[in-house]
Amino acid sequence: MSRLEVLKTYKIYIGGQFPRTESGRFYPVELKNGTVTNICLSSRKDLRNAVVAARNAFEGWSSRAAFNRSQILYRIAEMLEGRKAQFVEELVAVGASRAAATKEVEVSIDRCVYFAGWCDKFTQAFGSVNPVPSSHFNFSVHEPTGVVTIIAPESPSLLGLVSCIMPVIAGGNTCVILASENSPHVAVTFAEVLNSSDVPGGVVNILTGKEDELAEHFSSHMDVNATIYCREKHLKRIQENGALNVKRVLNWAKYDWNKQGEDPYLLLETQEVKTTWHPIENIAGAKSGY
């Protein structure tokens, strides 16, 4: 008798755990070979739970040494590299050519490494000491904006997801991301990668489901500080909702992640610039001597 293959249950990722959606609902995604996979149809309550997890994780993640965040992001790349074949298979299963799938996974790995490098460098590169006409040491540094909700692009399903997550968490934010609706498998597998990469639970939360249901809540939640939108249908509504608590609304549908995405300015988009006026003695008037 031949062996029965053990198939994976695709679940969502909240607070470092893999629960099913609290709603108990699912939607079918048909693979190219005719197999039907059941994917969690996340509800607004899953979003609520994910935002709570992200908010709780924020303090620890944002106050971590930047160099340590860098190490963790690099670790994601290492884990991703080891799981390359699995990701390629999952992309091929939903219709990509093997060559395109391999390319997408490789670019995704490189993107992790790219932002791992920026973690402990962007404040030096983009912060500034500002000239002021008074006895102050005046400097500007970047601070993470907080909890970021992301609606990832429909495609590329893996590269789009990784390209949105990395600049956000590299800067110390935590996030909740809605995966591609028709190719969510790689997102769930990516959650397993995150789970084994020392990324603290709650820093990245991944939901699967339909944007028509969730876009409203992703953008209207008052405990969310920024929303990144990579699709087109609900842009206007999301921008209106952003006004409720002056969320940043970022339209990232404009990026072609295959060609763009290695860009430190993406990281700066979820940062707040904080300027400090630090009183000092009148250095200009000081003379040498002790």
């Binding site: 607004r44 809540h217 209207s220 008052m222 969310v224």
Partner: peptide
Amino acid sequence: EGRYQGLDY
């Protein structure tokens, strides 16, 4: 209000 709230408010 029909939307989830944040402690900031």
